[in-house]
């Protein structure tokens, strides 16, 4: 199964399709996404803004999982790190949003590199548990220091008087901010694509197969592992900054440990081996609960449904939903080179 992933882990949906065909699906998805504001619903605009944001997070998780075989159960906590820095800088300096977003991303990339330190020595469940412990620590820490809301001092938190964070100059309204998030998500995809189709991608592929042989082939295993974590952390940090921009403030209670575990689970369910798996993960993570809530299904009943669906998906679809869709798509195209 692992070999399979390496072979088909690229962005192709179908190998014998023409060059144009591989861009077809992304372009369709992008057009659909950009037409969402035209629906004219404030609720679904908010929901899809969250979906766009968590797509970036899931992209970072699936990168680690697919390329390095590493599991992070701390990505929602990492989003919190990025969001904290973005908010802090915004309230302190009022620089353009992009600077703050980037700074939040870079800071989280550094945190990601710190998480990579244990990853140099362990993998699998142990590493996952280290990240889980980090997420657990973060959820308590942030409950104490809180997110900056325009107060004084280093933490920038005051019990009263929330000052709302400024949004990007180009995206003041909810509609514009949604488009802004989609654009950042596209850039995030481009960043990951560029990495996977260049030297780091080849190095990661070899490392995933065997670290010893990667090292024998002259690859700096430590560097590329750390780089993978930094990139993944960067994406989470950007997502956190966007979340802060979406709500214009953050609340410590948005970052419990369970959320970090859940988004990893959904990334696996969505399908880490295909490029659109991250989108499916984010849809499951934010759109599905919102749909159930809107249909009047109680949050508790939604839990039951969600948990059952999670177990079912993990038990029956080893390549995730994206894998099933890709398999179906390739069958429909009557391609000789079938994916499963």
């Amino acid at each position: 199964m692992k070999n399979y992933g390496e072979k088909y882990g690229h962005f192709e949906m179908n190998q014998i399709s023409g060059q144009w065909r591989r861009w077809l699906a992304p372009i369709i998805i992008l057009i659909v996404a950009l037409s969402i504001p035209a629906m004219g619903s404030a609720l679904w605009l908010k929901v899809f803004t969250s979906v766009a944001i968590y797509t970036i997070t899931a992209l970072g998780i699936s990168l680690l999982y697919r390329r390095l075989g590493q599991v992070s159960l701390a990505h929602v906590a990492l989003m919190g790190c990025g969001g904290w820095v973005t908010l802090r800088l915004s309230h302190a300096f009022h620089l353009p949003f992009e600077f703050q977003l980037f700074a939040g991303g870079v800071f989280t990339a550094i945190v990601g590199m710190v998480l990579a330190y244990p990853a140099l020595r362990m993998r699998g469940l142990y590493l996952a548990l280290v990240t889980l412990m980090a997420a657990g620590g973060f959820s308590i820490l942030i409950g104490i220091i809180q997110f900056p809301n325009g107060g004084d001092g280093f933490a920038g938190y005051a019990i009263t008087a929330i000052t709302h964070m400024e949004r990007p100059y180009l995206a003041q309204s909810d509609e514009a901010f949604f488009v802004y998030c989609i654009m950042i998500a596209v850039l995030a995809y481009a960043l990951v694509y560029a990495h996977e189709h260049a030297k780091p991608g080849r190095a990661w592929a070899l490392i995933r197969r065997s670290e010893a042989s990667a090292m024998a082939a002259g690859i700096n295993v430590t560097f590329y592992k750390v780089w993978g974590f930094a990139l993944s952390g960067f994406l989470a940090g950007i997502a956190g900054g966007l979340l802060a921009g979406s709500l214009q403030f953050l609340d410590a209670r948005s970052f419990p440990v369970g959320e970090s575990v859940m988004i990893f689970a959904l990334t696996v369910v969505g399908g880490a081996w295909h490029w659109f798996g991250a989108i499916i993960a984010a849809l499951l993570f934010r759109l599905m609960p919102a749909l159930l809530n809107d249909w009047g299904v109680s949050g508790d009943a939604a839990f039951i449904f969600f948990g059952a669906a999670l177990m079912h998906a993990l038990a029956t679809a080893p390549k995730g939903i994206a894998g099933q869709i890709a398999g179906l798509a390739s069958r429909l195209m009557k391609s000789g080179d079938r994916h499963d």
């Binding site: 469940l125 996952a128 369970g258 575990v261 859940m262 990893f264 689970a265 696996v268 508790d300 009943a301 939604a302 839990f303 039951i304 449904f305 969600f306 948990g307 059952a308 669906a309 999670l310 177990m311 993990l314 038990a315």
Partner: peptide, 13 residues
């Protein structure tokens, strides 16, 4: 391990 989280959520719900 993650699948057991699904089980936990079902029970909690």
């Amino acid at each position: 391990a993650v699948a057991t989280l699904g089980f936990a959520i079902v029970i909690l719900g």
